[in-house]
């Protein structure tokens, strides 16, 4: 009888482990990031995981706010300075590892973090905009609650989330969601050149 009880407890324990949530960054990758970017980087990823875990069961809006706030803490820096390239889309690990990036890098990291939190990817778009304040091309992450509703803007310049109508300084140019296009098109490998490169880098776990 006692044997049966032990067996039952053991199986319950195993089920519990199996059902435990996967971390945003797995252990193996985290070790590599630590090797490359040292202990502070590891701490940043630890805080990211903590932030994500804290809003795991909250509404989309709570998730948006937490993610937006967390990543907006990262320093802005041009691709030329970091990567010696005119335009480069960094993976979330490079972005947080180096603790620096330009507008696309913020958008990418926010997008994948939200996707991890279970926000429907069809609601999220990479939006090319023109900033009248800086008079230069810019990119923000937009969140559409429904396809026809007014989007919320997650920007790294203006750190708070505003509906689109409140952001008179931004002129929308082009919306784009790589996952969505991949899903529609019959060519799984190709949808958007920059997006395709990014996906490849993520697959290779580029840090």
């Amino acid at each position: 009888m006692s044997n049966l009880r032990v067996l039952l407890l053991l199986s319950l324990f195993l089920i519990n482990i199996a059902c435990a949530d996967k971390p945003y960054v797995d252990k193996l990758l985290l070790n590599k990031i630590t090797d490359k970017y040292k202990i502070f980087a590891k701490k940043r990823f630890f805080f990211l995981q903590q932030t994500l875990d804290s809003v795991k069961n909250k509404s989309d809006l709570e998730k948006l706010k937490a993610v937006n706030t967390f990543f907006n803490e990262v320093r802005y820096s041009s691709d030329m300075r970091i990567y010696k390239k005119k335009d480069y889309w960094a993976t979330p690990w490079e972005f947080l590892g180096k603790d620096a990036g330009d507008c696309e890098d913020y958008v990418i990291s926010k997008y994948f973090a939200l996707k991890y939190l279970g926000v429907d990817y069809k609601k999220l778009f990479f939006t090319y905009v023109r900033s009248s304040k800086f008079k230069e091309p810019h990119m923000v992450l937009t969140y559409f609650k429904t396809p026809r509703s007014e989007p919320l803007i997650l920007d790294n310049n203006n750190r708070r989330i505003f509906p689109a109508s409140k952001r008179k300084d931004l002129t929308p140019i082009y919306n784009f969601n790589g996952d969505l296009l991949n899903k529609i098109g019959n060519n799984k490998q190709k949808s958007h050149k920059k997006w395709d490169e990014l996906k490849q880098n993520i697959q290779r776990k580029k840090i």
Partner: peptide, 19 residues
């Protein structure tokens, strides 16, 4: 022939997808 797609928007709002 493969079909290529792109998002279409008008201002901030979504119009749909062009195939």
């Amino acid at each position: 022939a493969p079909i290529a797609s792109a998002n279409v928007s008008a201002g901030w709002s979504q119009v749909g997808i062009l195939n």
